[in-house]
């Protein structure tokens, strides 16, 4: 009896130590949840993990993709993941909603959103048309544009895929130039200059994807975050130099998760994503948030009541505190 009793504290102690260790361990690992399921949109991170850039940088990274029941943002809120990818407009909304975020790596330097019209029509000529919009919350700039140009679109929120458009239920749909655009092409939709409206060409060239962490996490794990960001950037740069090999790595992730896509689609997606990483003015991969784009998005969204206030550039970056 005495032995058992004497042992209990040791056990509890050990448990505590174990828990502390686990917490610490948990503190060391960054769980990264990209916004969607495995695809070439996140090639750089796959490369960094697969080629050991994270390990080299001395940071534990685990990539966990979201599920239909567990979208990326909810995972972040629940701290099931520490880092995620978000579009700039999304980030502005979230910050506006009361969750401070820090952009540790901005990958996209250009806007990839387009409107594709059915039956070869010009999107700008389709007033009152039924236009598909993602239900998860992209398309802020489209809403702005709709207001600005008085197009009176009827937004139809859809969860995923292009079936609605293909079935003829929509007159037009929003699409990402690296994703749904190619899906539409793959579905046999003919793309011309007339039926495709590119936001980047009409004054709405606002950056999109970036890696975000909560500010609170960032304050406590600045070094980790920075290392993670550095290694991820390295991964992207490598992918830009070795696109075919990067594609092989992407396909490995895709196949592991049994994603219903093919190499052709992923190659096109990778090409387009890499292209969007090149800044229009400087012709370089800058991997930074541009204040002017933050300002533009912020102003437009505030103007059309998508934001309560304009979010500043400083609010999204590491301000050294």
């Amino acid at each position: 009896m005495k032995h058992t009793l004497k042992r209990i504290p040791i056990v509890i102690l050990m448990l505590c130590v174990g828990m502390v260790q686990q917490v610490a361990a948990q503190d060391e690992t960054i769980v990264f949840t990209p916004q969607w399921t495995a695809q070439a949109q996140f090639a750089g991170y796959y490369v960094a993990e697969h080629l050991g850039f994270y390990r080299e940088a001395g940071v534990e990274v685990r990539i966990e993709h979201p599920k239909t029941t567990q979208p990326a943002m909810s995972r972040l809120r629940q701290n099931l993941c520490q880092a995620t990818t978000l579009q700039l407009c999304q980030a502005l909304e979230i910050v506006d909603g009361g969750i401070p975020l820090v952009n540790i790596l901005q990958t996209s330097m250009n806007n990839a959103m387009v409107i594709v019209s059915a039956r070869g029509k010009n999107p700008l000529a389709q007033r009152g048309a039924r236009v598909g919009i993602w239900s998860v919350g992209f398309g802020q700039l489209a809403i702005c544009m709709n207001h600005k140009d008085h197009l009176d679109y009827q937004w139809v929120r859809f969860a995923q895929n292009i079936n609605l458009f293909v079935s003829g239920a929509l007159d037009a749909t929003l699409a990402m130039s690296y994703n749904e655009y190619y899906q539409l092409v793959q579905a046999g939709v003919e793309m011309t200059d007339k039926n495709v409206y590119r936001f980047c060409d009409h004054g709405y060239n606002v950056q999109e994807d970036g890696v975000y962490v909560t500010r609170s996490y960032y304050e406590q794990h600045r070094e980790q975050a920075k290392k993670f960001a550095e290694a991820s950037r390295k991964g992207w740069e490598w992918a830009a130099e070795h696109p075919e090999e990067a594609l092989d790595i992407v396909m490995a992730y895709v196949d592991k998760d049994h994603i219903a896509t093919n190499r052709v689609m992923q190659r096109l997606m990778l090409q387009e994503v890499l292209r969007l990483q090149v800044d229009r003015e400087s012709k370089q991969r800058e991997f930074r948030l541009r204040p002017d784009m933050v300002e533009l998005a912020s102003r437009l969204m505030a103007e059309y009541q998508m934001l309560n206030r304009e979010i500043t550039y400083e609010e999204l970056i590491d301000n050294g505190k």
Binding site: T68, T69, Q70, P71, S74, R130, S135, V156, R157, F158, A159, N161, N163, L164, S167, G168, A169, L170
Partner: peptide, 17 residues
């Protein structure tokens, strides 16, 4: 919340069409 069916094809298609 995780399955907002009114954004699914099966819900929207017959409605829209």
């Amino acid at each position: 919340d995780n399955y907002q069916y009114f954004y699914m094809d099966w819900y929207l298609m017959p409605t829209l069409l």
